[in-house]
């Protein structure tokens, strides 16, 4: 049986209510390769690599390198990181 898009489960990080509650920010850590192009492209410089990742691998990417996380206060929910990411690892869902 071939798997469809609906069967696949993605693990990752959820940051709720960025940009004053206008959007939710998601990162799928089995897709993130920690290239940090999103960090360089972010217009308000709110994305940062996680400095001390959890020991349970929930904050490590595909190659076991730290993934990124936005500052809740600074993020404006523009979606530039989603557009920049070469591997579709980031999703900004506007409410």
């Amino acid at each position: 049986m071939t798997m469809t898009k609906e069967d696949i489960k993605y693990t990752g990080i959820k940051v709720e209510n960025v940009a004053k509650g206008k959007a939710d920010w998601y990162l799928f850590n089995k897709l993130c390769k920690s290239c940090y192009l999103c960090v360089a492209k972010c217009p308000v410089k709110c994305l940062h690599p996680i400095e001390e990742p959890n020991k349970d691998n929930s904050e490590l990417g595909l190659f076991e390198t730290p993934v990124v996380k936005p500052d809740l206060e600074k993020c404006i929910g523009c979606g530039t990181c989603q557009m920049t990411c070469p591997d579709c690892a980031i999703k900004v869902q506007r409410k």
């Binding site: 993605y10 693990t11 990752g12 929930s58 579709c88 690892a89 869902q93």
Partner: peptide, 12 residues
């Protein structure tokens, strides 16, 4: 354990 997200990536 890493938590399973309810949304899917934005794949075409």
């Amino acid at each position: 354990m890493a938590n399973v997200l309810e949304v899917k990536p934005d794949l075409a």
